[in-house]
Design a binder for these strands. Structure first.
Lengths: 130, 130
DNA sequence: AAAAAGCTTCTTGTGGCAGGAAGGTAGAGA
DNA sequence: TCTCTACCTTCCTGCCACAAGAAGCTTTTT
């Protein structure tokens, strides 16, 4: 199967699939005649797997780890769960950060009349020491 | 004032300050003798301003806009408020996204026993069509 | 036969810097 | 005077995860 088909089925773009080949994440067999990448069913499964993991917010590096765990039929499920919990905690941190930011920005926006007058507490806040 | 002082006072790194000079965000006067960047009080104020705006999650481009609004004493506060509200809505979108992600990942992690056995619903979920 | 779609490689750009190389400069201390 | 340290400069590369596009093949369709 060529890269176009592989991309379509896996729900990724051609560029992305080629990129994954370049960085050695999912390497395709290369036809000696025309240099085209050829994808097996197994490759497709990996691409789909990665696509889903990416949608779950896992980084490429994490996908790499998940993939190797996925292919190792004897690994303990603990390892996968740990990776997932780590990810979860990172997301929680990011959530806290964003919530704080939101609160501060919201306060700022509230304080500004937002009309034709030039007085703007938002800019004042950004300009002042506190 | 040299870049080291400017960086310290504004709470940014030297690299960052130099970067802002390069991209024309806050351009320093250049001493013809030794090519050193020289920062005025006004420049410092801008750097601090940008530092705060960045901490509020504004992008460089948005900082550029805020800065020009900041320097224009006659602009209506409406413009600044609009920019802030846009930012707020972007943050809200990101929050929703992250919350959904968190929920899904949490469910996955819950479903996995996380022990020495190889059975792992997380990997199963990432591998299956749904 | 010609056009289209599909494939290849390669380079560049994105955002917002960090890190480091290679070298000039200024001031303090031995 | 020499050296040490600290500070400054420019320029290049790396990070992440690709997207966009150029130039040039091949394959399929009309």
């Amino acid at each position: 199967m060529n890269i176009g088909q592989a991309a379509k089925i896996s729900g990724l773009t051609i560029k992305t699939v080629r990129y994954y080949d370049n960085i050695g994440l999912v390497m395709a067999y290369q036809d000696p005649e025309n240099q085209y990448r050829v994808y097996s069913k197994d490759d497709i499964a990996k691409l789909q797997f990665i696509g889903r993991a990416r949608r779950f917010g896992f980084s490429i590096q994490e996908c790499r780890e998940l993939l190797s765990l996925y292919q190792d039929k004897n690994r303990p499920s603990r390892e996968v769960k740990e990776l997932t919990l780590e990810k979860l905690s990172k997301i929680d941190n990011k959530l806290d950060e964003l919530k704080n930011l939101r609160k501060q920005l919201y306060r700022l926006s509230k304080s500004c009349s937002g009309d034709d007058r030039p007085d703007c507490p938002i800019l004042d806040a950004l300009a002042s020491e506190n």
